[in-house]
Design a protein around this nucleic acid. Structure first.
Length: 469
RNA sequence: GGCGCUAUAGCCAAGUGGCUAAGGCAGGAGCCUGCAAAGCUCUGAUCCCCGGUUCGAAUCCGGGUGGCGCCUCCA
């Protein structure tokens, strides 16, 4: 089975062909750690987590890098406003980011470089750019990249720059030779945020870190440095354009063979922003809905499309995931058996087609439906039950959901004390039912429903789930 | 102003030239059940509008209209 991905540069789906047979190198732009992660960070992380899992499932040896930008104007502002050190701020947000990503089931990257720990590579790359005449220093000590030296600048994003228009946007005091030029190195003197290097005292610009980190951590020496470079759709220009240009000028190589960009997240049809006051922090959403549901919801839309986050949709999507867990309850305690190869192939094929997670979910829906039907007809077919267990395990591995305990899933947020009360009432109802006192049995059922507990009489006895109304 | 994305049933959402346009939620009918719930079965779309290309288009091209994004820090 081959992997097909949509390459942002060619603007079409292409068959993925790795630089090295059987291996894939991926670099994804990570967050600037000056604030809590929002749903957009989650979307990006999930998109490339799916890529990672799918490539691994196809048998590739994947090396994935995701950086942390831990030196930046916004962080420095926060430092000045909060009286905290740079490291206190960045450590705090890196920790939070990692634990929130874990809650979403995002696998850790193999390499997690930080800008402040890559100064050597950054310095080396800037020096090399200066040597080649692709960078220049201005009066205040800042160093800029000279975009005019790269005749392929703009070929990545296809941005045609309108000079007249650009004029209005640049700051008058800027000493750039061309509006498109960007800072590689910002001179400064504040000790905590400056690095003493052969470039002078200063700190790196944003774009250079990714190029430098890729040089540092990946060692392909051919035409391309890495296989796939990913990030949010907004990064295509100027960030990725600049990265590509720097690497091209410094090394003569292209930075990445393929580029992938995930779509945006909107909230109730509006762009997320603090000023709008819409709750978009991942921590808030995780607190209310939990990581697994959030993951399931966010991957229900193809990664390249924009995502409109909406609580109503999220809750109807939960019912879809519930169905998987009800099936899991039906095979509870059964040992895993042989995976249904047709199911596995169909699911993996959907994901191999440019991460068509929407289609993958529909493949799972069908598996659940077929399994329920057959379990109704053959309730004692142990081998079939074992296959279902294996199927669900495979879903967990490839898609990253379905791995929780099915009873816990439906009983989240209910204390042991409440549970014993519920069980007592269920037992009482059982007695009433046995005595054919249906009036009393129904009263108890109503009482439980009032407590948010829905009963289900099954062959294996009465089960219950928490219901949200 | 420049560049680009998008428009599929009440809602969410796949499909990008050709059998009956996936799947989920909501709704309706049935089976099952003491009754429910769950589960299963059945049930819904001339694919934004107008032209064009083609034997054939939701799918390609042109023009509208609506929504959105990037061009400034941004996932």
């Amino acid at each position: 089975m081959q992997m097909r991905i949509f390459d942002s540069i060619q603007k079409r789906k292409v068959v993925f062909e790795p630089i090295k047979e059987g291996e894939v190198s991926i670099y994804v732009c990570g967050p600037t750690v000056y604030d809590d992660a929002h749903l957009g960070h989650a979307r990006s992380a999930l998109s490339f987590d799916m890529l990672n899992r799918t490539l691994k499932a196809l048998g590739y040896k994947v090396t994935m890098a995701k950086n942390f930008t831990d030196i930046d104007d916004k962080i420095i502002n926060k430092m000045h406003n909060s009286n905290k050190s740079l490291k206190e701020i960045t450590d705090y947000y890196i920790d939070r980011y990692l634990s929130e990503m874990e809650a979403l089931g995002v696998k850790r990257a193999d390499i997690e470089p930080k800008a402040t720990e890559s100064i050597d590579a950054i310095e080396q790359m800037i020096n090399s750019l200066i040597k080649k005449g692709c960078a220049y220093r201005v009066d205040n000590g800042d160093i800029y990249f000279d975009t005019s030296k790269d005749n392929r600048y703009g070929t990545l994003s296809h941005m045609v720059n309108n000079e007249d228009d650009m004029q209005s946007r640049i700051c008058q005091s800027d000493q750039k030779r061309d509006p498109k030029d960007f800072a590689l190195w910002k001179a400064c003197s504040e000790p905590e945020i400056c690095f003493d290097t052969t470039l002078g005292k200063g700190r790196p610009g944003w774009h250079i870190e990714c190029s430098a980190m890729i040089e540092k951590h990946f060692d392909n020496k051919g035409e391309y440095r890495i296989d796939i470079h990913g990030g949010g759709a907004d990064l295509l220009f100027p960030h990725h354009e600049n990265e590509a240009s720097q690497t091209r000028c410094a090394t003569g190589c292209e930075i990445a063979k393929y580029w992938m960009h995930n779509g945006f997240v909107q909230i109730d049809g509006e762009k997320m922003s603090k000023s709008l006051g819409n709750s978009f922090f991942l921590k808030d959403a995780l607190g209310v809905y939990g990581g697994e549901l959030l993951r399931f919801y966010l991957i229900s839309v193809h990664y390249r499309n924009d995502f409109n986050f909406n609580e109503e949709d999220l809750l109807s999507t939960k019912k879809r995931l519930d169905k998987l867990y009800r099936l899991k309850k039906r095979v509870y305690g059964i040992k895993s058996g042989t995976l249904d190869s047709e199911f596995k192939d169909t699911l993996l094929e959907a994901m191999s087609d440019d991460l068509n997670s929407s289609k993958a979910l529909s493949v799972i829906d069908t598996m659940v439906s077929v399994a329920n039907d057959r379990l109704d007809k053959e309730p004692k077919n142990r081998q079939f039950k074992q296959a279902i267990v294996a199927n669900i395990e495979y879903i967990d591995t490839l898609m990253g959901f379905g791995g929780s305990d099915p009873f816990e899933w439906f009983q989240q947020g209910i204390s042991d004390e409440q549970k014993s009360k519920i069980n007592k009432l269920i037992a009482q109802r059982g007695e009433a039912k046995k005595a054919k006192d249906f009036k009393k049995a129904d009263e108890i059922r109503e009482e439980l429903l009032g407590m948010g507990v829905q009963l289900m009489d099954t062959n294996e006895g009465t089960k219950w789930e928490r219901v949200d109304r």
